[in-house]
Nucleic acid binder design. Structure first.
Length: 265
DNA sequence: CCCGTGCCCTGGCGGC
DNA sequence: TGCCGCCAGGGCACGG
């Protein structure tokens, strides 16, 4: 499931494939994904650039910004125009190629904004800064007034942007903090450690994804692979640091993996 | 404002 | 072999 590193890698792919191309036509195969008024506005627009903010992709067009969220399984790929795959929902006919948005679960979203409104209304108006830019005092102030588990806080895009369920577990493991630790009991030092671990893990994941970018296809995963993970999906396996069995619990309905010895309340 | 729950979706898998 | 129920999860609406 795409988190900040995967979205960043996708944006690199899109810059390579779609930057400078004009949208000549669009075929929408699942109407809830994109309505007709959006489709009409997009036709004739040139893709001048692709930016990212957290898990969002932002296509910078001639007159609008197109905000794309991949959610769990959304992906973009370029392929033979004659081949339509089962979960291709939006097909962009560009100047000299066909770009497809494929999404098995249909959870992905498209939002079109006037350029002046992009960051003024949802979804981007509510988005916090990414770990790379976030200010420690701001982050710590947000934490101090929350009574939820820290895991829940890391998934809150309005507090810190770009972290999803997989990297949240990995970040807390590296920071040696228990996922159920209540946010407002953290010290400023621990908040700082969380930010540092976030930057470290996201950066390493981006580098990892970057190695597969040139062979990117719809059915290839980007980002971290299972052997890079320390705790996520490792239930009952020995912790790579202390050999304690990795535990699995639910935090706010999300599967959460942790080491009860390395990560303290 | 904060916090928890249910919903959107499909495919894969365990159980029988 | 097939069917059923559950699980995966990001963001949002909605209730307390």
């Amino acid at each position: 499931m795409p988190e900040l590193p995967e979205v960043f890698v996708v944006s690199k792919f899109l810059k390579k494939e779609a930057k400078g191309q004009t949208i000549e036509d669009i075929v929408v195969r699942y109407s809830k994904m994109m309505d007709e008024s959006m489709r009409k506005k997009l036709i004739g627009q040139t893709i001048n650039d692709i930016e990212t903010h957290g898990k969002y992709l932002i296509f910078k067009l001639t007159d609008y910004d197109l905000i794309s969220h991949l959610r769990m399984e959304g992906k973009y790929y370029v392929s033979d125009p004659d081949v339509i795959n089962k979960h291709d929902h939006v097909i962009f006919y560009l100047t000299d190629k066909v770009l497809k948005y494929n999404d098995v679960r249909k959870f992905g979203t498209f939002d079109l904004r006037e350029k002046s409104q992009t960051y003024k209304i949802p979804p981007l108006s509510k988005l916090a800064k990414e770990p790379f830019e976030i200010d420690l005092d701001t982050f710590y102030a947000a934490i101090k007034k929350r009574r939820s588990p820290i895991k829940t806080i890391l998934l809150n895009q309005g507090i810190i942007a770009g972290i999803g369920n997989i990297y949240a577990d990995e970040i807390l493991f590296q920071a040696k903090i228990h996922p159920l630790k209540i946010a407002n009991t953290l010290t400023k030092k621990q908040a700082q450690t969380i930010i540092a671990s976030s930057i470290d893990i996201l950066t390493r994941a981006i580098k990892k994804g970057g190695t597969t970018i040139f062979s990117f296809k719809s059915d290839e995963e980007v980002g971290w692979f299972t052997q890079d993970l320390m705790v996520h999906t490792k239930a009952n396996e020995p912790c790579k640091i202390c050999q304690t069995k990795i535990g699995k619990i639910k935090v706010n309905g999300r599967s959460t993996y942790f080491c009860s010895h390395c990560q303290r309340m």
